[in-house]
């Protein structure tokens, strides 16, 4: 005999309830997210791909960087970068909102939900948004003729993978945050900004001074971009490097999820 009634069972896959509530919250911003998902790639591609691209082809000829048009060159980098951006936005803001701003997680935790299911739900919701965002982005790239190689579609799972890895790390970081102003500043100004700018996004990493190239090596965006470039236009890359790129992203994903889930449970138990 147990004192707990048998009808009150704990839901099996609790994360899906959290996932549902996260997605409902996201739908409130539907138009905003949709507009940004479409406008962002369009505007960046036109502005950088065509605008800056025309300056580059004036200077060094139409097959300037890496033997392809500038638009084709930056396309996989922008795709991976947008995946990282949307998965990160979602994990960071949901986590801060849940622990700090509206303290929603503490309410959820009063139901059969646990730290793990809540963290899982938040992460999965971020992945849903990332997958949708990446799909829209790829479709636009296709129309710009930047996805023409036969295995270009591989760039899609690569970008999603990069989003997952970075989202997982941010989930772990954000769950520790108490001073969110400081955190958001550091993340925005000293992590995301430099990552976007110095990961070989707009020119090959090799053309940076070697001291700055280190930054690319620790950046998931660079690893994903290298893989993406291989997929979309056959950028030269050795098998060893392919393994290193994948291994890096995988380690980030696992470490991020491990520490994220652990901290969610700990913080809720406090």
């Amino acid at each position: 005999m147990t004192l707990l009634g048998t009808t009150r069972k704990v839901p099996k896959f609790g994360a899906r309830y959290v996932l549902e509530s996260q997605i409902r919250a996201m739908l409130k911003f539907f138009w905003l997210i949709a507009a940004m998902a479409i406008l962002n790639p369009l505007l960046y591609l036109v502005s950088f791909g065509i605008g800056v691209g025309s300056l580059i082809s004036q200077h060094i000829g139409p097959h300037g960087i890496d033997g392809v048009s500038y638009l084709t060159f930056i396309a996989p980098a922008l795709l991976a970068s947008s995946a990282i951006q949307s998965s990160m936005d979602e994990t960071i803001f949901s986590t801060l909102e849940g622990f700090k701003w509206r303290k929603l997680f503490f309410g959820m935790n009063a139901t059969p939900q646990t730290g793990n299911t809540i963290a899982g739900g938040v992460f999965l919701a971020a992945m849903v948004r990332t997958v949708i965002g990446v799909s829209v982005y790829s479709a636009i790239l296709y129309f710009f003729g930047a996805m023409n190689s036969p295995h270009a579609y591989l760039a899609i799972p690569i970008a999603i993978f990069a989003g997952a890895s970075f989202g997982a790390i941010m989930l772990a970081f954000a769950s520790h945050v108490h001073n969110e102003d400081l955190f958001l500043t550091i993340i925005g100004r000293f992590l995301i900004g430099p990552m976007f700018l110095f990961s070989g996004t707009f020119y090959p990493l090799k053309s940076l001074p070697s001291a700055l190239q280190i930054f690319g090596w620790i950046s998931p965006l660079w690893h994903a971009t290298e893989l993406g470039r291989y997929a979309t236009y056959g950028h030269q890359i050795s098998v060893t490097m392919v393994i290193i790129h994948f291994a890096f992203l995988l380690v980030m994903l696992v470490v991020g999820l491990f520490f994220g889930f652990r901290q969610f449970s700990r913080r809720l138990a406090k």
């Binding site: 580059i56 200077h59 100004r189």
Partner: peptide, 23 residues
């Protein structure tokens, strides 16, 4: 106070990185 870091980073990345291919 760290607000002016962003344009400086853009300047380094584009001015020198992309700039090499533009002249």
């Amino acid at each position: 106070l760290s607000g002016f870091v962003e344009p400086v980073l853009y300047l380094f990345s584009f001015g020198y990185g992309v700039g090499r291919f533009i002249g």
